[in-house]
Write a protein that binds this DNA or RNA. Sequence first.
DNA 1: GCCCAGGGGTAGT
DNA 2: ACTACCCATGGG
Length: 302
Amino acid sequence: MAKIIQEEWKIQVPFHLDYTLQCGQAFRWKRFQDRWVGFIKDFLVEVQYDPQTHWMKIRAKPVNSNAVFSREQIEEYFGLKDSLSMIKETTIAKLRENGYAWFIPKMEEMFQKSAGLRILRQELWEVSLSYLLSTQTSIPAIETKLHRLCGLFSENELEWEGESFFRFPSHSQLSSIKTEVYQSLGFGYRSGWVYQFVQQYVSSEFQALKTESLERKVAFLLRFSGIGYKVAHCICLFGFSEMGAFPVDVWISRWLNEVFSVKGNSDTLTHVGQKMFGRYAGYVQEYIFNYCRNLKPGGGWI
DNA sequence: GCCCAGGGGTAGT
DNA sequence: ACTACCCATGGG
């Protein structure tokens, strides 16, 4: 019987757990009343965070015998090492440099509204497949697809307080899955993409990419069928921690048009966003996304 | 039922 | 290079 690890400590930097896990960068965290349950590395983790006291409580169950727990790992995963104030100042300086000083108050408001939202450090393999499934799909529907995919492997099941959770399938597990199975899971026209991606995926190639530039990463990813600019930038932002990546989906596209009157296809708008917002365009993008999605039709903030 | 979703591929200009 | 159109499915 695996031993449960319990730890709690005070977070010394701004943090918003709900925004971070709800904003559509990760799809498999499950929320209960005041806590979230999901996987970090080799642990099934229950996270509680009190925004008043800034205390984080963790309970973690190892999924294998060589799992080693550390706070470091948790803080790394939640992006707690990112300096949000530095990111904000750098972005604002960039806006001024680019002649968008008029937008700075609005930018500050957006940082304020999404305060504490951080980019997670997720695993490349899971991120890649998740966003391969994300095309023309709502976030709840992506969650359904991934839930079904994970449910294929009963050996990956772990129990937590009467609920079952499934580890994400490994590369070798998926390598024996046929296209028809993906179709039976409701992947639709993405089924072939997923099949091909699994066949073509070489872990060492992805690991080797980590030291390459964002441009080289994107170019590599674009060679896969089903990965275009948007998905490639999502994989770079959420899987490679490339904070300058700028995924353009329908929300970002509409927003850029409404606020800056720019139009174009995905790759054009990607470069526009990168130039406009600079080194941390990915963080800005996430704040824009969270902003748009939390905006009520009338204009207020939910 | 209807509309749209964290888009991408392809064929036609 | 740019555009138009199709793609299969599920959640709201």
